[in-house]
């Protein structure tokens, strides 16, 4: 689980441990004496000095990553104080986690949703608990027609795998799978397009200065959650169909 921490807006200034002058809270180095600062209680966006936006300039991110890698590297602090050595190790490891998360579009979106208070891992259980307590039927987070399709396709895949074990290759099933593959790849790419549109909406909401409770901010967030839920099914299908067709 990623750490959930305050947003950059709530971070205030602090002082450099070495020269005691005022510096920005999440600064890696003191702008006055250049000393390495202890790890701040900050999220990955803040670590890279970014706002909580989803459209990211990946080449700029990469450059910053390499620059920080060099400057934070434990070798640089081999002869520094034990505290600085420890900070450099901690920050180097944070840097790698942050970079790996932010450069991947889906990981970045999931991470942002977590920062926004969405518990992706627990949403289903929470909904089940609520439904049970209220004696109501649970609203499935994935549309029923997609579930039907996923189920049917899995049946076909299983049939094909069994046939293969027996040394047969059912041409009709193979044909069906080919066309299903095209359809699901199409779905995956259109869900990627939809996600990018939601990124733009999100970034606009953030640019407008909306706070965490802003209804627009919450609405875009929830639409991204729904989209990612759908997408994980389609992604699995594409993977499974490719696997079945490859052999």
């Amino acid at each position: 689980m990623h750490p959930v921490v305050p947003s950059p807006e709530t971070l205030s200034a602090q002082t450099c441990w070495s020269c005691v002058r005022e510096i920005e809270k999440a600064a890696h180095f003191c702008p006055h004496c250049s000393k390495l600062q202890p790890p701040a209680d900050s999220d990955y966006f803040t670590f890279f000095g970014l706002q909580r936006r989803l459209n990211i300039d990946l080449s700029a991110l990469e450059k910053e990553f390499y620059k920080l890698s060099r400057r934070l590297h434990p070798d640089v602090y081999a002869r520094a104080t034990p505290a600085e050595q420890q900070w450099s190790t901690q920050k180097s490891s944070l840097l790698n986690d942050a970079y790996r998360t932010l450069r991947d579009p889906i990981a970045r979106t999931e991470y942002l949703l977590e920062l926004e208070g969405v518990k992706l891992e627990e949403q289903s259980r929470t909904a089940t608990d609520e439904a049970r307590e209220q004696g109501k039927e649970k609203q499935q987070v994935v549309p029923p027609d997609l579930l039907e399709e996923v189920f049917e396709l899995n049946m076909q895949l299983e049939e094909m795998r069994m046939g293969k074990k027996m040394g047969e290759r059912d041409e009709q099933v193979a044909k069906d799978l080919e066309s299903a593959k095209g359809r699901f790849e199409q779905m995956l790419s259109s869900s990627n397009d939809d996600l990018r549109k939601l990124w733009n909406e999100w970034d606009q909401v953030i640019a407008s200065g909306a706070d965490a409770e802003d209804p627009n901010r919450v609405a875009v967030r929830d639409r991204m959650v729904a989209l990612l839920n759908r997408r994980s099914y389609v992604r699995n299908l594409v993977r499974d169909v490719n696997e079945a067709l490859a052999t």
Partner: peptide, 12 residues
């Protein structure tokens, strides 16, 4: 017929 969005599983 239900699904777990966390992992993409489906159960009937």
């Amino acid at each position: 017929l239900v699904g777990a969005p966390e992992c993409g599983d489906v159960m009937r």
